[in-house]
Nucleic acid binder design. Structure first.
Lengths: 234, 234
DNA sequence: TCGTTTTCTCAGCAAATGTTCAGCCTGGGC
DNA sequence: GCCCAGGCTGAACATTTGCTGAGAAAACGA
């Protein structure tokens, strides 16, 4: 993902499952964030005190204390740190009880695209962060993250959620080659079991809906992957 | 969720339950207010002296002193700070009598929409705050918050309380995508246990009553949520 | 109190979306 | 030019999502 000279923001990732923690922190670092991790609530509060993160990604279910208490403590310690909750898809009770205090939340299993998008959205809202653009543009292609809308040469285009996420991933990585495996890892949920064939299907859908004019923007690199290239430097 | 350059007003939120305090302060901040919190009467008076809030949201039942005494003290200290009381639904007579001291009150469990609306109304009344519009308009849709009335192409429409709150939430967030969870969290009481199905029902009711003309204003974004979009940029 | 309004749930239907796959196409090495 | 692995795409199928009408239950008002 985007590589920046300086970190966009400092994040604290809190989850007791090492897999998830690693998955998230690696991916978020690649997206340009500075990342600190914690495995439980106690650790989270401790690190938050010392490092003053700009945002906390917090699993609702932790071994020592539930996420809401942690969020409360964090806010006691560190003013109005925004919190993005991670929660199981069917955690109905939790939602009712506490998710409203969250600035946003993502259900497990999530896709990395989704988490990054939510983090950016929250930072944009809570800090009015203008370094994080809500609107992307490549050639005649425009994408508004907040309005969840896409235009081709000014004409609105309807995309399904997956199509939208895929296009967004391409646009954030304009000019960078993305392998099918990489795309699968970022755009699809981390528990997706299928093979890279889906990616081909969705690239096909996208081209039909979004890449209709010459010069083409989405290019195939045989044996390597795909690139979204702006016009003129093909 | 409106993002503002400056805070609309400074609020002091007083409640001994941490959950409620967090819920309110997170949500009010998201609505553009600057928020200070206090857990009991003593703290409330102390903070009010120092920070001079524009309005105090005050739970009637506090561990150290009852809300009315607190309100009295606040007024001794800080002129005529308006107060919005929070009270249990089954308020007995003495309480109701006391509530006449309040500029307004909201019963628990409340919906965030309701609290924000009341706060705005009180600020409008007591400060003549013109930054806070009482009338919203989107396309041929008009909503008067104060008169609690809605017109479609100039024709008045009868809405139930929930329908009204939902429409208001849509209109305040024109152009912004709202997920069903988000809608549930803001428009329904915080103790609502049901699922997002109700939202679908109420959107259906609303469309039938207020979104009868082309072009449609309320759009469904499958898998994402709903948007109220003004005509012409679909 | 009784009738009316409102809220909420639910199930059946329709439509959109996600996934797989087989057959065809194509670029590039030989 | 021939071949073939890799890529493309239409079709089929499964799954998910959203819409709506009907009705039970609760709240409200006279």
């Amino acid at each position: 993902m985007t590589v920046l000279d300086r970190a966009e923001a400092r994040l604290l990732v809190v989850d007791d499952e090492p897999n998830i923690r690693e998955l998230l922190s690696a991916s978020l670092r690649r997206s340009g964030f500075e990342v600190i991790t914690a495995a439980d609530g106690r650790e989270a509060v401790h690190f938050a005190e010392r490092t003053r993160p700009d945002l906390v990604v917090l699993d609702v279910m932790l071994p020592d204390m539930d996420g809401f208490s942690v969020a409360g403590r964090l806010r006691d310690v560190n003013g109005q740190t925004p919190v993005l909750f991670l929660t199981a898809r069917d955690a109905t009770d939790d939602k009712v009880a506490g998710l409203r205090v969250a600035d946003d939340y993502v259900t497990k299993p999530f896709s990395l695209e989704e988490v990054v998008a939510r983090i950016r959205a929250v930072l944009r809202r809570t800090r009015g962060d203008l370094d994080i653009p809500a609107r992307l543009q490549v050639g005649t292609l425009e994408l508004d993250e907040e309005a969840h809308q896409v235009w081709v040469s000014g004409e609105p285009v309807r995309l399904s959620p997956t199509e939208f996420k895929l296009l967004h991933y391409f646009m954030v990585n304009t000019g960078r080659v993305l392998s099918k495996a990489q795309i699968l890892d970022h755009v699809w949920n981390y528990d997706f079991g299928g093979d890279a064939g889906v990616v081909e299907s969705y690239v096909s859908y996208l081209r039909r809906k979004v890449d209709v004019n010459e010069p083409r923007l989405i290019h195939t690199l045989r044996g390597v992957g795909y690139v979204l290239r702006p016009p003129r430097d093909d």
